[in-house]
Protein backbone atom coordinates (compact mmCIF):
# COMPACT_ATOMS: atom_id res chain seq x y z
CA UNK A 1 0.00 0.00 0.00
CA UNK A 2 1.59 3.30 -1.03
CA UNK A 3 2.18 5.87 1.69
CA UNK A 4 0.87 9.36 1.28
CA UNK A 5 -2.09 10.65 -0.72
CA UNK A 6 -3.40 8.77 -3.75
CA UNK A 7 -2.26 10.52 -6.89
CA UNK A 8 -5.08 11.69 -9.12
CA UNK A 9 -5.17 13.34 -12.50
CA UNK A 10 -5.92 16.91 -13.45
CA UNK A 11 -7.94 18.08 -16.45
CA UNK A 12 -6.58 21.28 -17.99
CA UNK A 13 -8.45 22.95 -20.83
CA UNK A 14 -7.95 21.36 -24.24
CA UNK A 15 -6.74 24.72 -25.60
CA UNK A 16 -4.41 25.32 -22.67
CA UNK A 17 -0.96 26.23 -24.07
CA UNK A 18 0.68 23.34 -22.23
CA UNK A 19 -1.90 20.88 -23.61
CA UNK A 20 -1.33 22.25 -27.09
CA UNK A 21 2.43 21.80 -26.69
CA UNK A 22 1.86 18.14 -25.80
CA UNK A 23 -0.48 17.73 -28.79
CA UNK A 24 2.04 19.31 -31.16
CA UNK A 25 4.71 16.93 -29.86
CA UNK A 26 2.29 14.10 -30.62
CA UNK A 27 1.64 15.34 -34.18
CA UNK A 28 5.38 15.69 -34.77
CA UNK A 29 5.75 12.10 -33.62
CA UNK A 30 3.04 10.96 -36.08
CA UNK A 31 4.79 12.61 -38.99
CA UNK A 32 8.20 11.20 -38.10
CA UNK A 33 6.79 7.66 -37.88
CA UNK A 34 4.13 7.46 -40.60
CA UNK A 35 5.18 4.63 -42.90
CA UNK A 36 3.40 6.06 -45.95
CA UNK A 37 0.93 8.66 -47.15
CA UNK A 38 0.77 12.30 -46.18
CA UNK A 39 1.78 14.39 -43.19
CA UNK A 40 -0.98 15.19 -40.73
CA UNK A 41 -1.66 18.44 -38.90
CA UNK A 42 -3.46 19.10 -35.59
CA UNK A 43 -7.14 19.96 -36.04
CA UNK A 44 -8.69 19.57 -32.56
CA UNK A 45 -7.78 18.37 -29.09
CA UNK A 46 -10.71 16.23 -27.93
CA UNK A 47 -9.71 15.46 -24.34
CA UNK A 48 -6.78 15.63 -21.95
CA UNK A 49 -5.94 14.12 -18.58
CA UNK A 50 -2.64 14.82 -16.89
CA UNK A 51 -1.30 12.18 -14.53
CA UNK A 52 1.58 12.70 -12.14
CA UNK A 53 4.47 10.38 -12.85
CA UNK A 54 6.82 8.98 -10.24
CA UNK A 55 9.49 9.94 -9.49
CA UNK A 56 9.18 13.06 -11.64
CA UNK A 57 7.25 14.45 -14.56
CA UNK A 58 3.67 14.28 -15.83
CA UNK A 59 1.96 12.17 -18.47
CA UNK A 60 -0.56 13.81 -20.81
CA UNK A 61 -3.26 11.33 -21.85
CA UNK A 62 -4.52 12.97 -25.06
CA UNK A 63 -7.19 12.36 -27.66
CA UNK A 64 -6.60 14.43 -30.78
CA UNK A 65 -8.04 14.81 -34.28
CA UNK A 66 -5.74 15.49 -37.22
CA UNK A 67 -6.22 16.28 -40.90
CA UNK A 68 -4.22 15.11 -43.87
CA UNK A 69 -2.04 17.72 -45.58
CA UNK A 70 -0.86 17.75 -49.18
CA UNK A 71 2.78 17.10 -48.14
CA UNK A 72 3.94 13.52 -48.53
CA UNK A 73 5.73 12.04 -45.51
CA UNK A 74 8.93 11.85 -47.56
CA UNK A 75 8.65 15.56 -48.43
CA UNK A 76 11.07 17.59 -46.24
CA UNK A 77 8.77 20.66 -46.31
CA UNK A 78 8.11 21.80 -42.71
CA UNK A 79 4.58 20.95 -41.58
CA UNK A 80 3.79 24.65 -41.04
CA UNK A 81 4.23 25.20 -44.79
CA UNK A 82 1.97 22.29 -45.80
CA UNK A 83 -1.61 22.91 -46.93
CA UNK A 84 -4.53 21.04 -45.40
CA UNK A 85 -6.29 18.73 -47.86
CA UNK A 86 -9.58 20.46 -48.64
CA UNK A 87 -13.04 18.87 -48.37
CA UNK A 88 -13.58 19.01 -52.15
CA UNK A 89 -10.35 17.03 -52.64
CA UNK A 90 -11.78 14.32 -50.37
CA UNK A 91 -10.19 15.09 -47.02
CA UNK A 92 -8.78 12.45 -44.67
CA UNK A 93 -8.85 12.72 -40.88
CA UNK A 94 -6.82 11.02 -38.18
CA UNK A 95 -8.10 9.97 -34.76
CA UNK A 96 -5.33 9.46 -32.19
CA UNK A 97 -4.76 8.49 -28.56
CA UNK A 98 -1.42 9.53 -27.10
CA UNK A 99 0.50 9.34 -23.85
CA UNK A 100 3.03 12.18 -23.83
CA UNK A 101 5.55 12.56 -21.01
CA UNK A 102 6.55 16.04 -19.86
CA UNK A 103 9.78 15.96 -17.94
CA UNK A 104 12.20 18.82 -17.33
CA UNK A 105 10.13 20.94 -19.70
CA UNK A 106 10.55 18.47 -22.58
CA UNK A 107 7.77 16.46 -24.23
CA UNK A 108 8.33 12.89 -25.41
CA UNK A 109 5.83 10.32 -26.66
CA UNK A 110 5.33 7.18 -24.57
CA UNK A 111 2.61 5.59 -26.66
CA UNK A 112 0.58 6.35 -29.77
CA UNK A 113 -2.43 4.84 -31.48
CA UNK A 114 -3.88 6.43 -34.61
CA UNK A 115 -6.38 5.51 -37.27
CA UNK A 116 -7.13 7.54 -40.37
CA UNK A 117 -10.24 7.53 -42.50
CA UNK A 118 -11.43 9.45 -45.54
CA UNK A 119 -14.43 11.77 -45.31
CA UNK A 120 -17.74 10.21 -46.35
CA UNK A 121 -18.85 10.45 -49.99
CA UNK A 122 -22.02 12.17 -48.79
CA UNK A 123 -20.03 14.93 -47.06
CA UNK A 124 -17.76 15.47 -50.07
CA UNK A 125 -20.75 15.80 -52.39
CA UNK A 126 -22.46 18.22 -50.01
CA UNK A 127 -19.70 20.77 -50.63
CA UNK A 128 -18.92 19.72 -54.21
CA UNK A 129 -21.50 17.54 -56.02
CA UNK A 130 -19.24 16.82 -59.02
CA UNK A 131 -15.93 16.29 -57.25
CA UNK A 132 -14.31 12.87 -57.70
CA UNK A 133 -13.88 10.63 -54.68
CA UNK A 134 -10.78 8.76 -53.63
CA UNK A 135 -10.28 5.58 -55.64
CA UNK A 136 -8.91 2.29 -54.32
CA UNK A 137 -5.14 2.34 -54.75
CA UNK A 138 -5.05 -1.24 -55.99
CA UNK A 139 -7.58 -0.64 -58.81
CA UNK A 140 -6.07 -1.80 -62.11
CA UNK A 141 -6.79 1.59 -63.77
CA UNK A 142 -4.92 3.34 -60.96
CA UNK A 143 -1.94 1.00 -61.14
CA UNK A 144 -1.84 1.43 -64.94
CA UNK A 145 -1.98 5.23 -64.64
CA UNK A 146 0.91 5.22 -62.16
CA UNK A 147 2.98 2.94 -64.38
CA UNK A 148 2.32 5.14 -67.41
CA UNK A 149 3.12 8.33 -65.49
CA UNK A 150 6.33 6.87 -64.03
CA UNK A 151 7.45 5.61 -67.45
CA UNK A 152 6.82 9.07 -68.90
CA UNK A 153 8.80 10.71 -66.09
CA UNK A 154 11.76 8.36 -66.57
CA UNK A 155 11.68 8.81 -70.37
CA UNK A 156 11.78 12.60 -70.00
CA UNK A 157 14.88 12.76 -67.83
CA UNK A 158 18.56 11.94 -67.81
CA UNK A 159 20.27 10.51 -64.74
CA UNK A 160 18.94 7.90 -62.33
CA UNK A 161 16.00 5.65 -63.06
CA UNK A 162 13.28 6.25 -60.46
CA UNK A 163 11.37 3.33 -58.98
CA UNK A 164 7.88 3.38 -57.48
CA UNK A 165 7.86 3.57 -53.67
CA UNK A 166 4.10 3.80 -53.12
CA UNK A 167 0.85 4.91 -54.68
CA UNK A 168 -0.46 7.59 -52.32
CA UNK A 169 -3.71 8.88 -53.80
CA UNK A 170 -5.95 8.35 -56.84
CA UNK A 171 -9.22 9.70 -58.21
CA UNK A 172 -11.29 8.92 -61.30
CA UNK A 173 -12.16 12.16 -63.06
CA UNK A 174 -15.32 11.90 -65.22
CA UNK A 175 -14.88 14.65 -67.83
CA UNK A 176 -12.66 14.14 -69.68
CA UNK A 177 -12.34 10.53 -68.55
CA UNK A 178 -9.05 10.53 -66.65
CA UNK A 179 -7.26 8.95 -63.75
CA UNK A 180 -5.50 11.35 -61.41
CA UNK A 181 -2.72 9.79 -59.34
CA UNK A 182 -0.12 10.80 -56.78
CA UNK A 183 2.82 8.55 -55.97
CA UNK A 184 6.24 8.49 -54.34
CA UNK A 185 9.41 7.43 -56.15
CA UNK A 186 13.05 6.78 -55.28
CA UNK A 187 16.29 6.98 -57.29
CA UNK A 188 18.06 3.75 -58.21
CA UNK A 189 21.55 2.81 -59.38
CA UNK A 190 20.27 2.38 -62.98
CA UNK A 191 20.46 5.09 -65.63
CA UNK A 192 16.95 6.06 -66.78
CA UNK A 193 17.64 5.88 -70.50
CA UNK A 194 19.47 2.54 -70.32
CA UNK A 195 17.13 0.45 -68.18
CA UNK A 196 16.26 -2.95 -69.59
CA UNK A 197 14.94 -4.73 -66.50
CA UNK A 198 13.81 -2.30 -63.75
CA UNK A 199 13.59 -5.21 -61.31
CA UNK A 200 17.39 -5.39 -61.32
CA UNK A 201 17.78 -1.76 -60.21
CA UNK A 202 18.60 -1.09 -56.56
CA UNK A 203 17.73 1.91 -54.42
CA UNK A 204 20.72 4.13 -53.67
CA UNK A 205 22.33 3.77 -50.23
CA UNK A 206 21.87 7.50 -49.75
CA UNK A 207 18.14 7.62 -50.45
CA UNK A 208 16.72 10.16 -52.84
CA UNK A 209 12.95 10.33 -52.89
CA UNK A 210 10.53 12.16 -55.09
CA UNK A 211 6.81 12.82 -55.28
CA UNK A 212 4.81 12.80 -58.51
CA UNK A 213 1.38 13.88 -59.68
CA UNK A 214 0.11 12.32 -62.87
CA UNK A 215 -2.98 12.48 -65.06
CA UNK A 216 -3.77 9.83 -67.64
CA UNK A 217 -6.57 10.83 -70.03
CA UNK A 218 -8.30 8.82 -72.73
CA UNK A 219 -7.96 10.60 -76.06
CA UNK A 220 -10.24 10.57 -79.11
CA UNK A 221 -7.89 8.27 -81.05
CA UNK A 222 -8.47 5.52 -78.50
CA UNK A 223 -5.10 6.00 -76.86
CA UNK A 224 -4.17 7.96 -73.78
CA UNK A 225 -2.40 11.19 -72.96
CA UNK A 226 -0.06 11.18 -70.01
CA UNK A 227 0.94 14.24 -68.02
CA UNK A 228 3.27 13.97 -65.05
CA UNK A 229 5.18 16.36 -62.80
CA UNK A 230 7.60 15.18 -60.14
CA UNK A 231 9.48 16.93 -57.38
CA UNK A 232 12.72 15.22 -56.41
CA UNK A 233 13.78 15.87 -52.83
CA UNK A 234 17.30 16.28 -51.45
CA UNK A 235 19.16 13.08 -50.63
CA UNK A 236 18.63 11.70 -47.14
CA UNK A 237 21.65 10.34 -45.24
CA UNK A 238 20.87 7.19 -43.27
CA UNK A 239 20.54 8.21 -39.62
CA UNK A 240 19.34 6.08 -36.69
CA UNK A 241 16.08 7.49 -35.32
CA UNK A 242 15.67 7.88 -31.55
CA UNK A 243 12.80 5.74 -30.27
CA UNK A 244 10.62 6.13 -27.18
CA UNK A 245 10.91 3.59 -24.39
CA UNK A 246 9.31 0.31 -25.38
CA UNK A 247 8.62 1.34 -28.98
CA UNK A 248 9.49 -0.90 -31.90
CA UNK A 249 11.45 0.88 -34.60
CA UNK A 250 11.10 -1.62 -37.43
CA UNK A 251 7.63 -1.38 -38.94
CA UNK A 252 7.13 2.34 -38.30
CA UNK A 253 9.97 3.95 -40.20
CA UNK A 254 9.17 5.18 -43.73
CA UNK A 255 9.38 2.57 -46.45
CA UNK A 256 13.08 3.21 -47.06
CA UNK A 257 14.70 0.50 -49.10
CA UNK A 258 11.40 -0.91 -50.25
CA UNK A 259 10.04 -0.33 -53.70
CA UNK A 260 6.73 -2.07 -53.11
CA UNK A 261 3.58 0.06 -52.87
CA UNK A 262 2.22 0.15 -49.32
CA UNK A 263 -1.54 -0.33 -49.41
CA UNK A 264 -4.10 -0.61 -46.67
CA UNK A 265 -6.18 -3.82 -46.74
CA UNK A 266 -9.07 -1.99 -48.35
CA UNK A 267 -6.79 -0.37 -50.87
CA UNK A 268 -7.76 3.06 -49.60
CA UNK A 269 -5.26 5.60 -48.25
CA UNK A 270 -5.96 4.84 -44.63
CA UNK A 271 -3.08 4.54 -42.22
CA UNK A 272 -2.71 3.33 -38.67
CA UNK A 273 0.02 3.76 -36.14
CA UNK A 274 0.37 1.82 -32.90
CA UNK A 275 3.44 2.39 -30.79
CA UNK A 276 4.57 1.44 -27.33
CA UNK A 277 2.78 0.42 -24.13
CA UNK A 278 -0.59 1.91 -23.24
CA UNK A 279 0.14 1.98 -19.51
CA UNK A 280 0.49 5.33 -17.77
Amino acid sequence: VPHGPVLGYREPACDDPETEQAALAAVDYINRHLPHGYKHILNQIDSVKVWPRRPTGEVFDLEIDTLETTCHVLDPTPLANCSVRQLKEHAVEGDCDFNVLKQDGQFSVLSAKCDSSPDSAEDVHKVCPDCPLLAPLNDSRVVHAVEAALATFNAQKSGSYFQLVEISRAQFVPLPASVSVEFAVAATDCVAKEVVDPAKCNLLAEKQYGFCKGMVTENVAGGEDVAVTCTVFQTQPVLPQPQPDGAEAGPLTPAQGSAAPALSPAGLPAASLVVGPRAV
Partner: peptide, 29 residues
Protein backbone atom coordinates in the same frame (compact mmCIF):
# COMPACT_ATOMS: atom_id res chain seq x y z
CA UNK B 1 -27.36 44.76 11.92
CA UNK B 2 -26.07 42.94 8.86
CA UNK B 3 -26.48 44.68 5.56
CA UNK B 4 -26.53 42.95 2.19
CA UNK B 5 -23.79 44.50 0.06
CA UNK B 6 -24.90 45.79 -3.23
CA UNK B 7 -23.72 43.33 -5.89
CA UNK B 8 -24.53 44.27 -9.46
CA UNK B 9 -26.06 41.39 -11.42
CA UNK B 10 -24.15 40.36 -14.54
CA UNK B 11 -25.66 41.58 -17.76
CA UNK B 12 -26.78 38.89 -20.21
CA UNK B 13 -26.10 35.16 -19.94
CA UNK B 14 -23.01 34.02 -18.06
CA UNK B 15 -20.55 32.44 -20.56
CA UNK B 16 -20.22 28.69 -20.15
CA UNK B 17 -16.61 27.52 -19.86
CA UNK B 18 -16.09 24.36 -21.92
CA UNK B 19 -12.57 23.19 -21.33
CA UNK B 20 -12.89 20.32 -23.82
CA UNK B 21 -13.04 19.58 -26.68
CA UNK B 22 -10.83 22.42 -27.90
CA UNK B 23 -11.22 24.65 -30.90
CA UNK B 24 -11.40 23.32 -34.45
CA UNK B 25 -8.44 24.74 -36.33
CA UNK B 26 -9.56 23.93 -39.89
CA UNK B 27 -12.87 22.08 -40.35
CA UNK B 28 -14.71 19.15 -38.90
CA UNK B 29 -15.36 16.02 -40.91
Amino acid sequence: KVAQPSVPAPEGPVPVVRPCPGRIRYFNI
